[in-house]
Design a protein around this nucleic acid. Structure first.
Lengths: 121, 121
DNA sequence: GAACTATATGAGCGAAAGGTAATATAGTGC
DNA sequence: GCACTATATTACCTTTCGCTCATATAGTTC
């Protein structure tokens, strides 16, 4: 979406098929759960086993396993099996940028809100 | 998240509070519904009234109004009232980048999958 | 103020999704 | 083969959430 040909400051937006829309939505939805973000956050400094992720996230083994599987199926995570253990890792580098964008935007918004609050009070 | 100090290719990830995590998740979750993406997509070429958005999205008035309100409360959309009509517009410029990132990532993945399929078949 | 238009809201329904407990599967070492 | 560990899966419960119908609110025009 916002699939674009930037021409100056105006952006030409092309139409999006229903399937494309659902794929995009599904990807955003995957990032829309705190537990999954916690797992991604733990993976940001490198590949980890399921057990390590269970400890890092504080979740149950079953739940963590499910979330990891969902993200792996969507292509967000990579899976590497070694003996008894399974190691997951960030497979989509845009995850870093996505999270930084949202984080930055939220920080700005919070700063603005705080300022407005101070001005009003 | 991925809140970072890039030092070479390694990224130092700092811890995230539970509140921050939920705020980030909420923002992603807002983008995780096709109907809301459809509305955003319609708004990408400029401010529109609710009625216009209802037509553009094919949704019901009640539903569209709810979604617009949710995104406005989150700071994604701006609201301008003029007479009987209410005009909504993109308030967070990072939305363009977010959608472009996801779109690009999905296109790449689809291309890879197609290639793998051809190779396998 | 009455009729009309544009938007918002309340109540209720049904589907989707996260969480958990218990169990299954796969791999290791003895 | 048996005990053990790491991960995945099944069944179930509960909550969340999107959707719709009906109605309320706000603003305009006459």
């Amino acid at each position: 979406m916002a699939t674009s040909c930037k021409t100056g400051s105006r952006v030409a937006v092309r139409p999006l098929s229903e399937e494309a829309l659902e794929m995009i939505a599904r990807r955003f939805a995957l990032l829309g759960e705190p537990m999954r973000l916690r797992l991604l956050h733990a993976l940001f400094d490198g590949e980890k086993s399921v057990t390590a992720l269970v400890e890092a996230s504080g979740g149950t083994q079953a739940n963590v396993s499910r979330h990891l599987q969902a993200m792996a199926e969507a292509g967000l995570l990579g899976r590497r099996k070694q003996g008894l253990q399974v190691f997951y890792s960030i497979a989509d580098p845009t995850l870093f940028q996505l999270c930084e964008l949202v984080c930055g935007s939220l920080e700005e918004k919070l700063a603005r809100d705080a300022k407005a609050f101070a001005r009003a009070g």
